[in-house]
Design a protein around this nucleic acid. Sequence first.
DNA 1: AAATTACAGAACATTATGTTCAATAAAATA
DNA 2: TATTTTATTGAACATAATGTTCTGTAATTT
Lengths: 187, 187
Amino acid sequence: MRTDRRVQKTHSAIMQAFEKLMMKKSYDDITIQDIIDEANIGRSTFYAHFETKDSLLEAICSGLFDHIFAQHLNAEPGHDFSGSEEDVEAKIIHTLYHLQEDRKRLSRIFSCESAGLFWEYFQLPFSAFVQREIVPALTADIVDVPKDYVVDFICNAFTSTVKWWFYQGLKATPEEVSGYFLRMALR
Amino acid sequence: MRTDRRVQKTHSAIMQAFEKLMMKKSYDDITIQDIIDEANIGRSTFYAHFETKDSLLEAICSGLFDHIFAQHLNAEPGHDFSGSEEDVEAKIIHTLYHLQEDRKRLSRIFSCESAGLFWEYFQLPFSAFVQREIVPALTADIVDVPKDYVVDFICNAFTSTVKWWFYQGLKATPEEVSGYFLRMALR
DNA sequence: AAATTACAGAACATTATGTTCAATAAAATA
DNA sequence: TATTTTATTGAACATAATGTTCTGTAATTT
């Protein structure tokens, strides 16, 4: 059985209202009252869909980042140079292109310093990629540095790179940004 | 003329109340009402001292990080190997020792993901240090990487290193952490 | 001793949160 | 189509925080 058409409508009304509000104010400044007014739904209806404002954010984030990362970054390699420098670079450039396409929605989200939750969701899928494909390729150099530190370091480096890129207004190309990142983060 | 003794008392009462509350809950969860109750002062008295909760945070942060950074990290070099690898390493280790000494207050603050303001204040003095002493020493390697990206990268790398360190419960020594950081961030 | 200043504490308007409930409208089911 | 199930509405409600304003009181300065 499909989900009730009313549920779908309310759900997307909330989502749209939230994104529209994100264009105007930062996450912390958005109240549930704002969302209710913007979505034009009853108070109790919101609470029938989401427990808190953070639950809503969680839903937004998974939809956003799953789309960007899950598809290709963690996809099974279809070629024989998986894990190589070329492969890693290609995947990072690919990811940056995806982020660039979503620039309109993301630039507002990324500039919102208050919502660390965003970055948690952002880093989660990237961390898997780092552990699987990047770290094994460079353990030779840094044997005595704890592995979890290395993973954490690279994830944060990528996050801050994307932050920097968006803060600059995406002036650089994905290829350039990827180059900067790889040169700084991986020797 | 000295400041009114009553003002001093109220001020420190607010500060102490805030720090005590930070031991219990995260920044976002602390209300002005909590502070008033904990400090045992009148409502209007708080607003006579601080406009908002963020103003109070700002005051706390400057006191905290100015103490840690300003003194030695940005001090005039008293020796002739300023800017060298040994000098940079010594200063970073020194900074980490200071952070370690303040672990009680800082661990609560650092684990509070919500307050990005903390990290802004944390990075501000470090950024000056990076630009003055670290970047000039390695521009040879990375000529075509934008300088502001390099500075941003290294600052964020140090911030995430400290975050990681505290998250692990400061198991590693400052010397070890400094080693990890320098090896990962500066080739 | 007099003037100044800070504080207490209460009152107040405003705003947001989260819950509850009966009526209504829409959808799914038989 | 008729019936049942479910979602939504909208209002009401209790709770709690914000920020302002005011008066009397107490401490401090001059």
